[in-house]
Write a protein that binds this DNA or RNA. Sequence first.
DNA 1: CGGCGGGCAATG
DNA 2: CATTGCCCGCCG
Length: 264
Amino acid sequence: MKQTTLWARMLRLTAILALTVTSAANARLPVFEALDSASGHPTRFAQCPQFFVDGKPPAIPASPKLRELCYEAFAILHSGETRTPVYVAQRLNRQTIEDADEKRATKFFADARLPRGERAELEDYKRSGYSRGHMAPAGDMPTPTAMAQSFSLANMVPQDIQHNGGAWAKIEQDTRRYIRRAKGDVFVITGPVFTPESPRIGNNGVGVPAYLFKLVYDQHDNRAWAHWQENREGERVGRPITYEELVKRTGVEFLPRLVVSQLN
DNA sequence: CGGCGGGCAATG
DNA sequence: CATTGCCCGCCG
């Protein structure tokens, strides 16, 4: 008898703990609440044009489950269909990289700004065999708030564990190394690519991308290139592809045409 | 080789 | 939640 009582207590405690966890995670991110209450709806890119070249976000065909989310140091176009980002945009420069020395705060959380029917939950990734792979990397974040926000699952895709810690991590570090030596702003857009055969994980069916890309545009030098990686173990860092090739493969024009016409 | 940076899971 | 220990790959 005593044992069942103990079990009941522990279960209750666990439930309370889970609730506390959720609210505490959100409470620690006051920026989210401020943006939400101010607008009354999920944030729009109009509120954070600074992350896009000439303030112009890439045009994506309309879809009911696409949502635009602004964060302190990046912006996300999120898909409620795959429950992942479509792309994540950043504007970086030497200064932001020098500021990116925050201690890594590994606290992943489901993004409360997204409806439950559209977002990934921690449970979806747990024991899925895939890691939670940042699109905007934690290592890029210039402030503690930005660091915390980067752990939103809205910024994640299910990524092969070896790829995430291997070739992909190297690409992230190479990109930071490049920006550290850049003369002006560098715009980076990172995202997943799915195929009809792409698997899904968890009760919510979070999409597992077949490929990941990272587009880098150096505004000062008018140069752009992209890394294109298969989301698999054993993938190596290859030679970057051209912007045109990226557009061909994704069907998305990420940069304003005027800018593209002037690329070196 | 050790340090670092990308993660994971178990425990209180 | 926080803490801890662990894995792995890359780099100097």
